[in-house]
């Protein structure tokens, strides 16, 4: 084969490959891909039972005809989850003000169920103003944790201070338990706008 033809063929194959693995040059990171796929493929999310801050069992899913906002936390978290908690608190206020709170459930889900017993969860709820009605703080059973995290595409890794780092985000779940949007923790406008639609 002539060099020119070989180069042309390789260039075509290479560009096609890179185009394929980046979803058409739209997602170069795993997190970017996760967010893109949420919007485009609306995958169904697992809905395990959680033990909430009052020790009651609740299911991680929206009410009939409603939507749910889900974020992942651990209560011993010194940084991002505190921030996530504050953000959820502001979000709750904004939704109430916009008259959208009805039909919206908010879940702060702990991925550290061994340490986050109802006592720890209720401390966290109290700190951030989670009412237990619209906004619940809960932890799944240890056996459900892995499936829950992989279903959502959340990667939790240990940091160097006996804590964790994870791809923190706000997940919007529709009435059929499908993931339809993933937002940055501080993108409150984006979440409110998406719920309004």
């Amino acid at each position: 084969m002539r060099p020119f033809l070989a180069i042309l063929a390789i260039a075509l194959m290479g560009v096609t490959l890179i185009w394929q693995v980046t979803d058409g040059a739209r997602a170069v990171t795993a997190e970017g891909a996760r967010r893109l796929h949420a919007v485009e493929r609306t995958p169904t999310m697992p809905s395990p039972y959680l033990t909430d801050m009052s020790g009651k069992t609740v299911r991680l899913q929206p009410d009939v005809g409603g939507v749910a906002l889900v974020e992942f936390i651990y209560t011993a978290c010194p940084t991002i989850c505190r921030y996530a908690g504050d953000s959820f608190a502001r979000l709750k206020g904004r939704l109430a003000a916009a008259g959208l709170a009805k039909g919206v459930r908010m879940f702060s889900v702990s991925f550290d169920p061994l340490r986050d017993d109802p006592m720890a969860l209720s401390d966290y709820a109290e700190t951030h103003g989670a009412d237990g009605d619209i906004w619940k703080v809960g932890a799944p059973a240890v056996t459900d944790l892995r499936g829950l995290l992989s279903g959502y595409g959340v990667t939790v890794i240990a940091d160097r201070f006996d804590g964790y780092e994870h791809n923190a985000a706000i997940h919007l779940i529709d009435e059929r338990n499908r993931l339809v949007g993933i937002f940055d923790i501080d993108d409150i406008d984006g979440v409110v706008e998406a719920i309004r639609r």
Binding site: M13, I18, V21, T22, V28, T29, A30, A33
Partner: peptide
Amino acid sequence: FFGIVFWMLPR
């Protein structure tokens, strides 16, 4: 080149 580009994607 394409091999390196692929493995430079954080994904």
